[in-house]
């Protein structure tokens, strides 16, 4: 079996725009799931609302496409009621960090055995490009026409501080690393959070100087800084530029977890 066998062939091609990074993240996640050797019938995908949340509809397992922001709460019910199921949540930055922020931090606190993959495109894509809690300061969106004046959430820092067992960040450029990171999350008991920065050419890129699909990928490539290297730079007293994206496994621990398969 390969990861391609996990797709609902009859629903492809999916609805994502040309060059959208979400499709890449689905590939990486399914590849990690496939590597785990899990059965389709023991695996459940859950999502909320937004571009990211359409992902489970293209996967041939049981899947629950729920309401905006609430995917983790629904997934909590599934996992607690049947810990034998492997539950993976697809979410986006708006879904997870704005309307669903409370569910996110409480799931981290409970350290419930879910793997949450967040496709962070730094914008509300499906509704046409409004600012989200991860829109970088200064970035343009339809609701921040003069540049975002708010600070952005560090989703990984939030997850780690709230108690998640496993936290990682990569981008849609880092396909091999992202696959390994998701796999690490699937292997680790407790709450695993993987943030995948993705390009949104339609609603983020073209407003923010990434004219071509490739431009944002090039940016991810050139601005990614492995966490180990960042730590070394800090030790050496070097300043890390604000626009660098710290990637890597940011937390891995084994605190007591809820809903772990017996």
């Amino acid at each position: 079996m390969t990861y391609a066998d996990w797709f609902r062939e009859d629903r492809l091609p999916h609805i994502y725009c040309v060059g959208c990074g979400n499709g890449t993240v689905i590939n990486c996640t399914l590849s990690a799931v496939d590597q785990m050797g899990w059965e389709k019938e023991e695996t459940v995908f859950v999502s909320g609302i937004g571009c990211s949340s359409r992902a489970p509809g293209y996967i041939v397992t049981d899947s629950l496409h729920t309401t905006h922001g609430r995917a983790i709460a629904f997934a909590t019910g599934i996992k607690m009621a049947n810990p034998d199921l492997r539950v993976i949540v697809f979410t986006g930055d708006g879904d997870l960090a704005a309307i669903g922020g409370n569910h996110f931090i409480h799931a981290c606190r409970r350290n419930i055995d879910l793997t949450v993959v967040c496709m962070n495109n730094m914008i509300y894509g499906m509704t046409g490009g409004q600012g989200s809690p991860t829109t970088p300061p200064g970035a343009l969106s339809t609701t921040t026409p003069y540049g975002s004046g708010e600070a952005a959430f560090d989703l990984c820092g939030l997850a780690a501080a709230a108690g998640a067992n496993y936290v990682a960040r990569y981008t849609s450029y880092h396909v091999k690393e992202l696959t390994r990171a998701v796999r690490g999350g699937l292997e680790n008991p407790g709450f695993s959070f993987i943030e995948a920065l993705v390009q949104c050419p339609t609603n983020y890129g073209r407003r923010n100087k990434f004219r071509q699909v490739m431009d944002q990928i090039e940016y991810f490539k050139s601005h990614a800084l492995l966490v180990q290297k960042a730590d070394r730079m800090r030790e050496e007293g070097k300043k890390i530029p604000d626009d660098m994206i710290i990637i890597g496994i940011l937390a891995r621990r084994n605190r007591p977890a809820l809903g772990v398969r017996k």
């Binding site: 859950v46 049981d62 629950l64 729920t66 309401t67 609430r70 709460a73 629904f74 997934a75 909590t76 019910g77 599934i78 996992k79 607690m80 009621a81 049947n82 199921l85 409370n102 569910h103 409480h106």
Partner: peptide, 24 residues
Amino acid sequence: GVFIQMEDEIASIAAVIGASWTGV
């Protein structure tokens, strides 16, 4: 059975619906 105190009522009914899909 499972009792879980959720973070709010939105999450409570969400968890109940999720649990129901496992057949309980």
